[in-house]
Each structure stands twice: as structure tokens, then as C-alpha cells.
């Protein structure tokens, strides 16, 4: 039986009177890429932020590696990493300083610290620019730096919100390949994206979410067959209509 890394049960979130999440449930297995897809305001980012221990929730239950998110958020933070959609890095630090700064929070000793930094340098792919300040980086470079930060510790669960948002085709492809390679090494990924092609390429399973409710969960290929659709966009359109 596959190990469950993330279990979300009947998750609810209200902003005042507005129901952002109306009781969604899903699971993410070990070594799986699970994607949330849906239109703006569907509740994708809210879900990701709750799992990342940033937002409180109004009802339901969230477990990461069997740990109750409400009771043990600090313990959970040691096992996860989160890449927000519009995240930035500290502009006055160099790329290397930023990676080292982040690695120190996770590394138990010097050996582990060196291992994390070395891995991050491999992921970013622009070693020669790591001595420059982050403020001088292009958007693609910052995104790679942040992805390297999110994956360098080989977290049990990486939460990636629109990981290729605003990037060109080449950078997007590189980032997708990096994510794929890390999953093969045991990391589970929960991600959200507007890009259905990206989801098709990356995800093992998807949850189609709209207006705070999950409409369908399944493997992309199976969903396409079920709804006689060419791609996930068609599946999504049929479900929403």
C-alpha cells in the first residue's frame, strides 16, 4: 500500500461570510505529483497555503505524514517546503547567501548543510552568478533560485504554487524537468497551475477545483478517457459547464 504523505479531509475555509473552501478532500501519496487545477478564485492557493501552515482553516482536518496540522505546525514545517506563486528572494543578499541562509534552517549539521547548498547550486544552473546580488537577477533566475531553495533539502512534501508562472518556454521546461527528477528521488509534490499542458506533463493525478469544491480527481489520462476529451482543458470545460 502506498504511503500517504498528505491527507486533506473535508477542508473548509471562510473569509468572513465568503466560503473559499467548501469541504474538499484529497490525498497525496509518496513520490507522487498531485496537481490542483481550476480558475482564479477556485481555492487552489488557499488550499496550498493551509497545507503550508500559513493560513488557518475553518473546518476539516489536514495531516502531513500523519501529523495533525493544527496541533503540530512546527514539526510539519521541518518536512515541507513551500514555493509561493509570486515569491521573491532578499534582494540585498547574493544568490549564494540566500541559499545558505535557507539551508541553515533545515540542516542538522555541517555535512548536511554542505549537501543542501551543493544540491541547490546544481539545480539553479548559474553558478557563476551566485555571487551577485539577487536584485540583479532576471525573473527566471529568481524562480530557479527559489525552486532550488524549495528542493535542496529533499523535502517529504514540496508545495509549489504556479512553479513556472511568468516564465518563458525554455525556463518552464527546465523547471518541470527539475521537479520530475526530484519526485523520482522520493519527494512528493502538491502543485497548482493554470497551465493544463504543464499539468498534463507533470502530474500523476489531478484534482479539478472550482468555487471551493473539488469536481473530479484522477489520473490525467483516465480523466481524458472518461470525458472523451483531447486534453485536460476540455475535461475542465465539460466539468465546469
Amino acid at each position: 500500500m502506498d504511503e500517504i504523505i498528505l491527507r486533506v479531509e473535508n477542508l473548509k475555509k471562510n473569509y468572513g461570510k465568503r466560503e473559499a473552501l467548501k469541504g474538499i478532500s484529497f490525498e497525496v501519496k509518496k513520490g507522487e505529483i498531485f496537481a490542483l487545477i481550476g480558475p482564479n478564485g477556485a481555492g487552489k492557493t488557499t488550499t496550498l497555503r493551509i497545507v503550508a501552515t500559513l493560513l488557518s482553516f475553518s473546518g476539516g482536518r489536514v495531516e502531513v505524514m500523519g501529523l495533525d496540522l493544527k496541533k503540530e505546525p512546527k514539526r510539519i514545517r521541518e518536512e515541507i517546503t513551500y514555493l509561493p506563486e509570486e515569491a521573491g528572494a532578499y534582494k540585498n543578499l547574493t544568490g549564494m547567501d540566500y541559499l545558505k541562509f535557507m539551508a541553515r534552517f533545515y540542516a542538522a549539521d555541517k555535512h548536511e548543510f554542505d549537501e543542501y547548498v551543493e544540491r541547490a547550486v546544481e539545480i539553479v544552473g548559474f553558478k557563476d552568478r551566485l555571487k551577485d546580488k539577487v536584485g540583479t537577477y532576471s525573473k527566471g533566475m529568481v524562480r530557479k533560485l527559489l525552486l532550488a531553495r524549495a528542493l535542496m533539502t529533499k523535502p517529504r512534501l514540496a508545495i509549489l504554487d504556479e512553479p513556472t508562472s511568468g516564465l518563458d518556454v525554455i525556463n518552464s521546461l527546465e523547471i518541470r524537468e527539475i521537479i520530475r527528477s526530484f519526485v523520482q528521488e522520493g519527494t512528493s509534490v502538491l502543485l497548482s497551475s493554470h497551465n493544463m499542458l504543464e499539468i498534463d506533463f507533470l502530474s500523476d493525478r489531478v484534482a479539478i477545483i472550482d468555487k471551493g469544491e473539488i469536481l473530479e480527481i484522477g489520473e490525467p489520462e483516465i480523466l481524458k478517457q472518461e470525458y472523451s476529451a483531447q486534453n485536460l482543458e476540455e475535461v475542465f470545460r465539460r466539468l465546469v459547464q
Partner: peptide, 14 residues
């Protein structure tokens, strides 16, 4: 402004 707070709040530190 630089969208670094969210990341900082998810690292394992009090």
C-alpha cells in the same frame, strides 16, 4: 513587498 514573508513563515523556526 518583495514577497519573501510567506516563505520565511514556512521555514522551521519559531
Amino acid at each position: 513587498q518583495d514577497k519573501t514573508l510567506e516563505t520565511l513563515l514556512t521555514v522551521p523556526i519559531s
